[in-house]
Design a protein around this nucleic acid. Structure first.
Lengths: 159, 159
DNA sequence: GTCCCGTTTGCACGCTCCTTGCGCGTCCGA
DNA sequence: TCGGACGCGCAAGGAGCGTGCAAACGGGAC
């Protein structure tokens, strides 16, 4: 079993805020020595509690003006068809996130595109014609209130 | 205007895959010297093309078993009410992403929780009772096909 | 209480990595 | 043709990293 103590939690919290923190900086935050932070970080990486580090790029600065949520219904629910659809989703870099959900649609995709032409291209030229897909409905993001992948390591208080 | 050349693109692509890459490793990937990669990285950070670095933590390893998408309709569409709702969303760490969308619902939230009790707590004890909120509909993620925040720096080819 | 053993810690040291100064080559406009 | 601006690699000084080691801590067995 993976055990994560209070020191580990401090390290994880700090690293998901700033993945480039120095062991010395971690040490100051966690109240440990730098070497110890190095050891703990290595352990957390080996145990895959930390699965990786990523630079966060500005979609605005790089000219990605459109985010869309795309609800997809499959043509059939056979295993083969699901497999085909998953393979399709995996090779489209514009699709950042993809989930199967309870409720109406079979899948929800989140895609990032340069412009509406890109979205049209994705929906009409890639998704719709694919044999696994029956119907597609897309919603465009008007405003982004919040966008991160941070886990809530401190627990939710009701109210 | 921000200008990003082919070297920058290689650096950005590499860093959104592995945010801890050494300047020397970047240099090998991009075909530059380490010092030059250091300089370019610093420029990209200053220009906010790179907005930050984050460790990616394993939700499974840390005991977050439930991801949910929550569609929220506001009670009224007054500016004050929107403001109240945004403030609410901002202080709930369980909500990783929040967008306003075209289409049916006013807002879509993506939340991460330890279990269904946590989701119930969030929906019934936090969101529903809030004065800004009229109705809430949640869908639970059954399967995660893909989950990243990488921008598609290579462009989409149709077909 | 006392002993023992496994774990965790801080410190020291050798090594890698980072960043800045510098000189060189190239490109473009005058 | 000349000159300035720019981007490059190299080198050096300083910061950061991780391993070895010994000391401190903690929990069982007796």
């Amino acid at each position: 079993m993976i055990s994560v103590d209070a020191f580990d939690l401090k390290i994880l919290t700090a690293l998901q805020d700033d993945g480039r923190l120095t062991n010395q900086e971690l040490a100051d935050l966690a109240g440990l020595s730098a070497s110890q932070c190095s050891r703990r970080r290595m352990r957390l990486e080996e145990e895959k509690v930390i699965s990786g580090y990523h630079a966060d790029l500005s979609s605005e600065a790089l000219g990605f003006g459109v985010i869309a949520f795309i609800q997809v219904g499959l043509a059939t629910h056979s295993p083969d068809n699901s497999k085909r659809f998953r393979a399709l989703v995996n090779r489209i870099d514009e699709i950042q996130e993809a989930y199967s959900l309870t409720g109406d649609a079979d899948y929800v995709l989140k895609a990032v595109l340069r412009d509406l032409k890109g979205l049209s291209n994705l929906v009409n030229d890639v998704l719709m014609p694919h044999q696994s897909v029956a119907h597609v409905r897309s919603s465009i993001v008007l405003d982004r209130l919040k966008e991160s992948a941070k886990l809530p390591l401190r627990d939710l208080k009701a109210g």
